[in-house]
């Protein structure tokens, strides 16, 4: 039975996989129809007809992950690393009968490469679905507090 703790544990586990760069295991958390969305507007509603920083399906996420390991991926020489500092997720919906599980998690995200270190603050919204015994990501939405600022490279995942 999926309860609130299952959701919270899932979100912590997801962040851990990103921090330890277990990319393939991270991809396995996604539902085949899953999306990773990084809006570019405040309380954005539409990922397709409004501009986003990212709105990627599993194919595009696979491209990113494969690229990170590429022999000729020069922007990963040296490699980036990341760190997620999460607030306890707030459960928005936990409805096993309807199969709807949603949570919102405030975070501070750090991405570092060589001598550079950049820090970002925002909120991650997870929409999860049950597949067999496990939860899968239908939508992971990351809203940066300063989505409208000009950033340098963000190469990993928040």
């Amino acid at each position: 039975m999926i309860g609130e703790k299952t959701i919270t544990d899932f979100i912590y586990r997801e962040a851990e996989l990103l921090d330890t760069m277990e990319w393939q295991t991270w991809l396995d958390l996604f539902h085949p129809e899953g999306r990773y969305w990084m809006p570019l507007e405040w309380q954005q509603q539409d990922p397709v007809l409004q501009p986003s920083l990212m709105y990627e399906d599993l194919l595009l996420l696979k491209v990113r992950v494969e690229r990170l390991a590429g022999e000729r991926t020069f922007s990963q020489k040296p490699k980036s690393r990341c760190h997620h500092l999460l607030q306890a997720p707030r459960i928005v919906t936990c409805d096993p009968a309807a199969g709807v599980f949603k949570a919102r998690t405030a975070y501070i995200y750090t991405e570092t490469r060589g001598d550079m270190l950049e820090r970002y603050s925002g909120w991650a919204s997870h929409e999860l679905v049950q597949v067999g015994d496990a939860l899968k990501i239908k939508l992971k939405r990351v809203d940066l507090v300063n989505f409208d600022a000009p950033f340098g490279n963000i190469q990993l995942f928040m």
């Binding site: 990084m38 920083l53 020069f74």
Partner: peptide, 11 residues
């Protein structure tokens, strides 16, 4: 800034 093509160029 999240574009992989952009990452290639900026590098």
């Amino acid at each position: 800034p999240t574009s992989i093509v952009g990452h290639d160029d900026l590098e």
